[in-house]
């Protein structure tokens, strides 16, 4: 009896979580523009999707910014994390607290604050400002992923290497970096997903000429519903599921990465 109740409850929760996704996918193959009626199968919306310049351009910007932001924030974040790790006392706490601000602050505040900075400094909103914004909110996640690995590091090994004649940079490359690699990788993955999924901060820092996929979806949804968004959602969802399956297969610690 209790088992049945548990099953029904979980069933309802999963229905709640998946119903919108299923509806989107089903209606991406629907012949009419109407959202409620089924009028037959079509792939038209997918064809239109790839002809739509707004969407293909947005896709280009989304991916380019995500890759650039990931690379830059992973490098800068890792270097900064090593520096912060060897600091002590007040300075360390101060830096860590400031580093946490973009994580804890609501995105909308981070977004408008950056926008006021860029415009006050006379910068034109566009690709550059959006990239800076993405690097800004990605670095803290890299640092938060790398620091625990640095704490696990046996500090005597690097010291021993230097006693034996290694230069600090050699010790860094040959000893510290290989040891903290798992942290760097999970930080980079976090940065990439945060960047590709971001809407709010991009919305305020991208200006009128550049938009990512989220911004396009927002403006399209506001103006009225277009079935091409359904097609886009289906493709993006599939991409995510495939990526997820690959990550899960490749590493037994997939679950850890996702959480």
């Amino acid at each position: 009896m209790k088992k049945l109740a548990v099953r029904i409850y979980m069933g309802l929760i999963f229905l709640f979580l998946y119903a919108p996704i299923i509806v989107l996918i089903v209606f991406s193959f629907n012949k009419t523009k109407s959202r409620g009626q089924w009028a037959g199968f079509t792939l038209d919306w997918y064809a239109q999707l790839f002809k739509d310049r707004l969407i293909t351009e947005a896709l280009y910007y989304t991916v380019t910014i995500a890759i650039l932001a990931t690379v830059i924030s992973t490098i800068v974040g890792t270097i900064a994390a090593i520096g912060i790790h060897y600091m002590r006392g007040f300075g360390k706490n101060l830096l860590l607290n400031i580093n946490n601000i973009p994580v804890l602050n609501p995105d909308i505040v981070t977004g408008v604050a950056l926008m006021t900075l860029f415009i006050s400094a006379g910068m034109r909103l566009g690709f550059m400002t959006m990239l800076i914004a993405h690097v800004l909110f990605c670095i803290p996640y890299v640092i938060l992923a790398v620091l625990p690995k640095l704490r696990q590091l046996n500090r005597h090994i690097a010291e021993a290497a230097m006693d034996l004649g290694a230069t600090p940079s050699y010790a860094l490359r040959k000893i510290i970096l290989p040891e903290i690699r798992p942290g760097i990788i999970s930080g980079a993955l976090m940065a990439f997903t945060m960047s590709i999924d971001d809407f709010v901060i991009s919305f305020f820092t991208a200006g009128n000429e550049v938009s990512n996929l989220s911004i396009v979806v927002y403006s399209m949804a506001r103006r009225g519903v277009k079935p091409t968004i359904n097609a886009l959602s289906t493709l993006m969802f599939l991409a995510v599921v495939i990526l997820l399956l690959i990550i899960n297969k490749k590493s037994g610690e997939g679950e850890e990465l996702l959480l």
């Binding site: 979980m10 999963f14 979580l17 998946y18 119903a19 919108p20 996704i21 509806v23 989107l24 209606f27 959202r35 997903t193 999924d197 809407f199 996929l213 989220s214 979806v217 927002y218 949804a221 519903v225 968004i229 359904n230 886009l232 959602s233 993006m236 969802f237 995510v240 599921v241 997820l244 899960n248 679950e255 996702l258 959480l259």
Partner: peptide, 25 residues
């Protein structure tokens, strides 16, 4: 179960909200 709970979160936030628009309108 965990995997099934996490998968919807991987869908773009805007799209999830948009999906409810097309259900509830």
């Amino acid at each position: 179960l965990l995997m099934f709970l996490i998968v919807p979160m991987w869908m773009n936030f805007l799209l999830r909200t948009y999906a409810w628009m097309s259900i509830l309108s």
